[in-house]
Amino acid sequence: MSKLSPFNVVSLTLGFVFLYLPMLILVVYSFNESQLVTVWAGFSTKWYGELARNEAFLDAAWVTLRVAFFSSTIATVLGTMAAYVLVRGGRFFGRTLFSGMIYAPLVMPEVITGLSLLLLFIGLGMDRGILTIVLAHTTFSMCYVSVVVSSRLVSFDKSLEEAALDLGCSPAEAFRLVTLPIIAPAVISGWLLAFTLSLDDLVIASFTSGPAATTLPIKIFSAVRLGVTPEINALSTIMIGIVTVGVIIASISTKRAKVKAEADERLAQRTE
């Protein structure tokens, strides 16, 4: 389909204005001089300075980053294993239960996941802190990783692995030398997804964190409940900025890869 009608143009324009205007306002007002967020009183970067001096926020950010790093890394390992088992594992006892447990957390309301994990940790007598948040985040984000990786594995030509076996690889070597390098992009995007989910999560972290460890979303939430503050605006701007840069870099590199693939295609045709 092509050829945009005026209706298409209007709906796209309004749609994207709706998606981006709120964030834009947030960013603009983070440079507002005034304490009152809704009244413009001149340009200033003082809230960024305030933010940099706010120990509580910095601590929370550090906790969040550590949690996100560890949970997404463990989740990537477990999720890739789970995806491999689901796509290539054949039949085994409890396969239905296993795939059910992989997909269930994707649709499970966060309040329920959080509640159930908290009750488990209390039942085990574990002190709530960074460890419990990491465990909780790993559990739900490994499911996302396994969905991303298994969709890559499904489209993966099985004969590549067979060719590796045929040429003398043991199954472990075949995975290391052939499968892993090919599915690596999916594994990396799985890791990024898990990392983002962990950074973003409020509900499950609220249930599983203790007084010793507060994550950034929990901090933001308790601040936001009281009202809109310029400091949160500044923090939001930083977070939006990081994501925007990341997504733009990612899309440029995909575009580069596409251009290169097209060039390769032409090269291949020329050599006929």
Partner: peptide
Amino acid sequence: VPPNKRAVNMMFQSYALFPH
């Protein structure tokens, strides 16, 4: 004898060339 220990090699229909 598992496939990786056989003195038999196979050329696959899809060629199965390692893309990387």
